[in-house]
Simulated scan of single mutants.
Amino acid sequence: MSSVDLIAIAIDWLDAYRAGDLLIVDCYADDASLQCDCGGKKELRCTHAIAAYWHQRFVETRAGDLIDLQWDGSDVVLHFRASDEILQAVLTFNPDGSLRRSRCALFNNQVAATGTENP
């Protein structure tokens, strides 16, 4: 059993995103990948490419309120607001607590996210 608190690391990741803090890159393993399907598909590998992505992302959109967080083994799934949209991020961790992969996309299920249906 691991003593690494993946939920706390996921919250730290989101807090860094909210703050526009490049310390978010420290969450990633050296060989990590980042997949973003927000506004066009992108898949990046290596710390330098991930840092460049986050630098641009902070300029374009910052994260807002956390809506939901779920833990499933080595994955933590977060739903949160960013601008006027709801995003889903799936964070996959290595046993040491470093991010092996992050995947984000627009979350289309407005009923689950807000409790109301869009007409």
Rank of each mutant, 00 (worst) to 15 (best):
T114G: 07
K42L: 15
S2Q: 13
D12H: 13
E85S: 06
D12T: 14
R103W: 11
L23V: 06
V4P: 03
R101N: 13
G20T: 07
C27G: 14
R45I: 04
A32Y: 05
S83N: 08
L91I: 11
V4L: 14
A8F: 03
F80E: 02
A29F: 03
S83A: 13
L14G: 08
L99V: 11
D15C: 03
Q56Y: 09
D96F: 09
T92G: 05
S3V: 09
R18T: 01
S102H: 04
N118C: 12
S102M: 05
W71N: 11
Q70K: 15
N108T: 14
D84R: 12
A89F: 03
F107D: 06
A49N: 12
A51H: 07
A52P: 00
D26V: 00
Q110Y: 02
G40V: 13
E85H: 05
A89Q: 02
Y53T: 03
D5S: 14
D75T: 09
H79A: 03
Q70E: 15
S33F: 02
F58V: 12
L99G: 09
I67D: 05
E60P: 00
D30T: 04
E117A: 15
V76D: 02
I7G: 04
A16I: 00
G115I: 11
A19M: 11
A82K: 05
I7T: 15
I7E: 15
I9Y: 03
A112F: 15
L99F: 01
G73E: 13
N108V: 07
S74R: 06
W71P: 04
S74W: 00
R100N: 08
A10K: 05
A89G: 06
V76E: 01
D37H: 10
Y17K: 07
H79Q: 13
V4Y: 07
L69T: 07
L6Y: 12
D15A: 14
R62E: 01
P95F: 01
A10T: 10
Q35A: 10
D26F: 01
M1R: 04
Q70I: 13
T114M: 03
Q110F: 07
G20R: 09
L91E: 04
T92M: 02
T47V: 05
R103P: 00
G115C: 11
Y53L: 11
V76C: 14
L91S: 00
F107Q: 06
A82F: 11
G73C: 01
I86W: 02
V111E: 12
R18Q: 14
A82R: 11
T114S: 13
N109W: 10
C46S: 12
D31F: 03
T61H: 14
L69N: 02
G64S: 11
V25Q: 07
P95M: 02
N108E: 12
L66P: 04
H55W: 05
D75M: 02
C46N: 15
D96S: 12
D96E: 12
A8S: 15
Q70W: 06
L87V: 08
G64F: 09
A49S: 07
R103V: 13
R57H: 05
R45W: 09
V76Q: 08
I50D: 02
H48C: 01
D37T: 06
D15F: 04
E85A: 03
S83V: 06
A29P: 04
F58C: 09
L69H: 01
T92V: 10
I86Q: 04
R81G: 04
Q88N: 03
D12Q: 15
R100D: 09
S33L: 07
W71G: 09
D75G: 00
T61L: 11
D21F: 08
A51P: 00
L44F: 10
F80K: 06
D21A: 08
A51Y: 08
